[in-house]
Amino acid sequence: MKIDFKVNGRDYSLEVREDMRLLDFLREELKLTGTKEGCGEGECGACTVIIDGKAVNSCLVLVPEIDGREVITVEGLERDGRLHPLQESFIEKGAVQCGFCTPGMLMSAKALLDGNADPSDEEIMEAIEGNLCRCTGYYKIVQAIRDAAGKLRNGKA
């Protein structure tokens, strides 16, 4: 079937397979391989993308569902070759080790900060509750998100 949608600011109008997962569509058809697959069942959050402002697991979305909607993936964070403050803070605060969980974490964090400019640590923990990280123990990730929130509030974005 044919659908119209937006990914990272760009408009598309494409013929898609009805039974394809959004995750596979992004990776295989649009070649946006930043979005990762961990579990394929909604548990790990590695596949998190933002649809119309809300963080969702792209492994649990079928492509036809994005008809008329806007998707943002980790590739959409960067602006004019500059990293997003969240990406900078993740690097600066050592919140990236193997990096597998990072794209998903960044998207959950972005969805949070877009709606809440000054979240408490508790709110940050809640926002990344659906993103598993086997390496960092989460503390540095929370620090990085708090740090990025500060930068964004001070207009250093």
């Binding site: 009805e18 394929g40 069942e41 909604g42 649990l60 979305v61 079928l62 569902e65 008809d67 008329g68």
Partner: peptide, 27 residues
């Protein structure tokens, strides 16, 4: 019928279910 798909797609993926057609409520 598929609403959020958070049960249905997990069950399909694990092979516990293989409906011939999915009717999504998304639109």
């Amino acid at each position: 019928i598929m609403a959020g798909g958070t049960d249905l797609l997990v069950r399909i993926r694990s092979g516990r279910l293989s409906p011939s057609r999915i009717v999504s409520l998304a639109r």
